[in-house]
Amino acid sequence: MKPNRKSTVIWIQGITCNGNSHSFLNYSNMALFAASFEMLYHPLLFTAHTLESLLEKPEAFDFLIVEGAFTKEARYLQRFGRSFPEILEPLANKARFIVCVGSCASFGGMFRLRDPQKISGALFNAKEKGGYWEEKSNVVNIPGCPAHPRWIAETMMALREEKTVLLDECLRPKEIFAYLAHHGCLRNEYFEWKVDCKQLGEKEGCMFYEHGCLGPNTHANCNKILWNDISSKTRAGSPCLGCTEFDFPRRALYETHKNMSLPQTPYGISKRAYYTLAGVAKSFKIERLEKKLIDEDH
């Protein structure tokens, strides 16, 4: 049901690079968003309220957006002379929904690596349940480094209109994160026939075997909806870094992690099924896939 008033939004930051704010500012239907939402405060923009005035007398509002990793340690994060809990708690208590944008707010992300005991996501510390909070019923995670602007804006719109937003075990909206980054990758055929990408910078070959691509193991619809409405990491010839998962960033991101010289299997595919099929596919030499995609001789 569509409410007849604008939903109110307060955007705050934990330990962050501002990447989710800047990603959100790339949303291509911003007028539509603005017709439904009133941004009471955003740290990078000139908004009607200051954070101090909102903290002075917190009133009920609709969406608390949190970007950046969570910490209770004042020496890791202070804003306006306040520790992160002193900013977060009064607002979290008054918010209808808490939306964690980006992998830092969701799982701790890259900045968690500095001190994994004391820096985490809202409800997760990497894959472990229990982050800054042990439990909280109104949290939605929109991971990604950064989160895609459509993931943020459209999830907020769906929540506002009380549409069913199914969440997975990581509290990610399923309509976005049931897909894998692999879905829609232009190099799918090379994956099917196990044709390796010989080197980066070419149109041909799959980056899963040697270049660390995590597309088949990463939940995100990047290659369905595309970044900046036009491309994606894999479409620009760069391996998927698995940035929407709880273990981002893994170690040695540009190398394929192998066991007995075999790569890990794609998400939810048994070793037996995958290696059997891979062995069969690899036993054929498909001439077309060994050649350049665009043959300049003709």
Binding site: N228, S231, S232, K233, A236
Partner: peptide
């Protein structure tokens, strides 16, 4: 948004695209 879309044709995404590698670009 349009400026960054133009750039993303080459860099894959903005922000946080990883479009460079030693010796050139990946696209």
């Amino acid at each position: 948004t349009e400026t960054l879309k133009m750039g993303a044709i080459f860099s894959g995404q903005w922000p946080h695209g990883s479009f460079v590698a030693p010796g050139g670009v990946t696209c």
